[in-house]
Design a protein around this nucleic acid. Structure first.
Lengths: 228, 228
DNA sequence: CAGGCATTAATTGTATACAATATGGGTTCG
DNA sequence: CGAACCCATATTGTATACAATTAATGCCTG
């Protein structure tokens, strides 16, 4: 986790590192994050850790149960649906806006992004590839210059990562690179309608690859099942 | 502020009371919330106050400047635009979904809501009326059974309240009750298309009543201008 | 031997003391 | 007279100590 440096880490830094760990599926839904443990790992006081955990709970990445601690969230099937419904409302329109403002620098950035994603897959790091794939979507909101939507999308992408961890059908193949390439093409030619349609289709594509039937996914212990 | 009861208030309660105060424009954009002051008012420790302030900062209601404190946010013109653009993406579609699920109880609740809004206006409490008007929109997301969108909308309504405080043209007349009545009618008859269209128009209506030209609104002091 | 109760350990929640930082006023020097 | 600097004060940031709660273990009893 490369936190060898003894430099003073802020709550923000710790939140970012934990976020990466969850996005890359090194921390799986249901995992508990003890405050002492985290504070030992990062070498900071519990005060700071609590700030970080609380921030991540607001984003939906963690769930804090009173007097019990912080856990990586386990989105229900309903929440999984809601996440992709919300994305379907926000992202296509945002892609359209982005197409009207995309610069050559943006294109270069996006293409580098896709390249890194490929490299991660080649190196057998599907978690990293997934994280980069999420960042790609955030990048489009940034290009559209819509900070408010970008903020929401950040949360939705986070939750999508959890949903994928729980409900993804086949773990090996996430062959979305074509969709991302096509999107970059649409952005490059400032074709808003195409970008909007492509994004819409892309989201439906991901959505359709989720297994929405299974109800007791994950390592749900008997205790957890009985708790609620 | 009716906090006479000495019962132990949680961070959540304090956040709720502060939220009301901002929504009702008793606390105006730019106002500072000193931690000691708030903790004295509510009779709790700064620890709890800080939790509450941080939570409200995540919602966008407050802005926390490092080592300087928490202030009621002052959305920029760009942010004001973004808020209503995001609402335009989320709310019409949500109103459509709501129409398909509205029950008689929901209708009763909404109508009581509108009634209270009227009463508040009659009693010359425009702040309260505005808050109730915002709650009306949240209620529709609840009826649509879309918790994720409701969560985002909560933030957007909060920010809208700030935007209205800063950019509203004429403070006296907020004659939206007609629009809300029409929406309830559409929901009652389960007319999704009508609900969607009405919501779209309603949001545009509010949006058009904002004064988006003035750039140096509010009590921006010279110091604040020079700070950034 | 099973079930429930009590005691104990582990963990989170809260308050407070202390450190770091920003603000404002007053003094001094140009 | 004005501007810049420095010190005193007010306010926020952080760590730590303590309280409250939960979970677990073992004991006692039926």
């Amino acid at each position: 986790m490369s936190n060898i440096t003894k430099e003073k880490l802020a709550a923000e830094d710790i939140a970012a590192q934990l976020t990466n760990a969850v996005h890359e599926h090194r921390l799986k839904p249901g995992a508990k994050l003890r405050e002492d443990e985290v504070s030992d790992v990062f070498g900071v006081s519990r005060t700071i850790v609590r700030q970080a955990l609380r921030a991540l709970a607001f984003e939906g990445l963690l769930t804090i149960e009173k007097n019990r601690g912080a856990f990586v969230s386990k989105p229900s099937l309903k929440e999984a649906h809601e996440v992709f419904q919300a994305r379907a409302l926000l992202e296509p329109s945002t892609a359209r806006s982005a197409a009207e403002r995309t610069t050559v620098d943006d294109i270069a950035l996006l293409e580098r992004h896709i390249k890194e994603e490929h490299e991660a897959l080649d190196r057998d790091q599907p978690g990293l590839a997934l994280k980069l794939s999420g960042d790609f979507h955030l990048e489009i909101a940034r290009i559209a210059d819509q900070q408010t939507i970008e903020q929401f999308l950040k949360q939705l992408v986070s939750r999508s990562s959890l949903v994928i961890a729980l409900y993804w059908k086949r773990r090996n193949a996430l062959c979305e690179s074509n969709a991302h390439h096509a999107l970059v093409d649409a952005l490059r030619s400032h074709d808003g309608s195409a970008a909007e349609a492509l994004m819409k289709g892309h989201l439906l594509d991901i959505y359709s690859q989720l297994d929405l039937r299974e109800c007791d996914k994950g390592a749900t212990s008997l205790k957890e099942a009985l708790r609620k």
